[in-house]
Design a protein around this nucleic acid. Structure first.
Length: 392
DNA sequence: TGACGTCAAGATCCG
DNA sequence: CGGATCTTGACGTCA
């Protein structure tokens, strides 16, 4: 079982994807941006390897407007060395990558222009994965499209378009249930008919259910039958509902207990899981460490990222985790993340926030200039908690 | 016509 | 002028 995240590694230096508007999308500019994005991609691949993340979705925006200028733009030859290096790292680390065009790539539209652009978009995606010389276990995920008031005709159109797609696309294409139109039972039926694998998305099925009496594991077992040797291990999408936002909105982070419950419910030989979540790689590291890979060193690094956010909410939890991590031999990942999640759910206390800030300030006090010290302590020797909000 | 989803670019505001 | 904050863009379908 691999666990992965989509497109962006947050808080990773040198990993920001660049783009531009259509107005300024001249050949030279787009080519230059693509080069920068390939460098960012390599950073993320390196990061994934360091963090034992062996599953990753490459952003469709890796080449800005890649689909509409796919034929003309020589990004493959211009950056062949960089792409070869990326490809080698993916293969040597046994990483699996995927791509996922958005809701605007629609193969079954009654509008021929929409269909033509969708095929161009898929051609671009297949070209990118093909350029990396990745085998057909590296997939492109797509939704079926619209129903247009007549599901049967919409499915028929999909089959007709699919039949004529080039093999470079169909050998990678997998279909996913979506949150408002095609349910997982409809996706499964179509996939069996055309011979494409099906990806089960748990949150989409929760808001657009095929059968409310059936479990996630039930659909995952059915989807497994659509995956063959050339497709590699079965893939699924996993996300959790954001508690405050609209139905279908992804959560800020993956709550670890429900995730592990989900994992335990899966059939033997669990599928690869792509997490769809706002904090991206943060949740991927969390889930990897709890579900499959105890790693004390990575847990210490994780603590460095969360500790001050915990301290300004709950000094007790802060102390508890410090003690927990002193034991270098045990597998404390789950208790660690449970405690972090509980602490982060609390609101920030001003006095504690000042205390946490003083901890951080300790790293900079020796190297700060007089003006920086004045801006940190505007009222004199002690930090002014009463007025602090206006100074930070 | 707006919502949906996404995240930089681009525009504007502020001190 | 720099940094912070708001708005726009680019895609197609559906209510």
């Amino acid at each position: 079982m691999r666990i992965g995240y989509a497109c962006l590694a947050i808080a990773l230096e040198g990993a920001q994807l660049k783009t531009c508007t259509l107005k300024t999308a001249q050949t030279e500019r787009v080519l230059s941006l693509a080069g920068k994005n390939f460098a960012a991609l390599e950073r993320m691949i390196d990061y994934n390897i360091s963090n034992h993340i062996s599953f990753y979705r490459i952003s469709s925006d890796i080449v800005p407007f890649g689909s509409r200028i796919t034929a003309g733009l020589p990004w493959d030859t211009a950056y062949s060395n960089r792409l070869a290096s990326i490809a080698a790292k993916i293969k040597n680390s046994n990483m699996r990558v995927s791509m996922h065009p958005g809701q605007y790539t629609v193969l079954n539209s009654p509008d021929g222009g929409v269909v033509r652009r969708a095929i161009e978009d898929l051609t671009y995606h297949a070209r990118f994965l093909g350029q990396l010389e990745l085998d057909t276990t590296h997939k492109i995920i797509l939704h079926i499209g619209g129903k247009y008031g007549d599901a049967a005709s919409a499915l028929l159109r999909f089959k007709q378009v699919y039949r004529d797609l080039p093999a470079a696309i169909t050998e990678r294409l997998v279909l996913e249930n979506d949150g408002s139109i095609f349910r997982i039972d409809e996706v499964l039926d179509l996939c069996h008919r055309i011979g494409a694998p099906a990806v089960y998305d748990n949150l989409h099925n929760a808001i657009n259910p095929a059968d409310k009496t059936k479990s996630d594991a039930y659909w995952i077992k059915l989807c497994r039958e659509t995956w063959h040797d050339k497709d590699g291990a079965q893939k699924t999408h996993y996300s959790q509902q954001h508690p405050a936002k609209l139905r279908g909105a992804h959560s800020d982070t993956i709550a670890i207990d429900p995730f592990l419950d989900y994992c335990r419910s899966l059939p033997y030989n669990a599928p690869d899981i792509m997490l769809e979540v706002k904090d991206k790689n943060r949740s991927a590291v969390k889930c990897v460490l709890c579900a499959s890979l105890p790693n004390q060193y990575l847990l210490e690094t994780e603590w460095g990222r969360y500790k001050y956010a915990v301290l300004e909410r709950s000094p007790n939890d802060y102390q508890f985790i410090r003690e927990l991590l002193k034991d270098k031999l045990g597998d404390h990942a789950l208790l660690f993340y449970q405690t972090v999640e509980r602490a982060l759910a609390l609101s920030v206390d001003t006095g504690r926030a000042v205390n946490a800030l003083e901890h951080v300030w300790g790293y900079f006090a020796d190297m700060a200039s007089p003006s920086e010290i004045r801006s940190y302590r505007p009222c004199g020797t002690d930090i002014c908690a009463d007025h602090s909000s206006s100074h930070r």
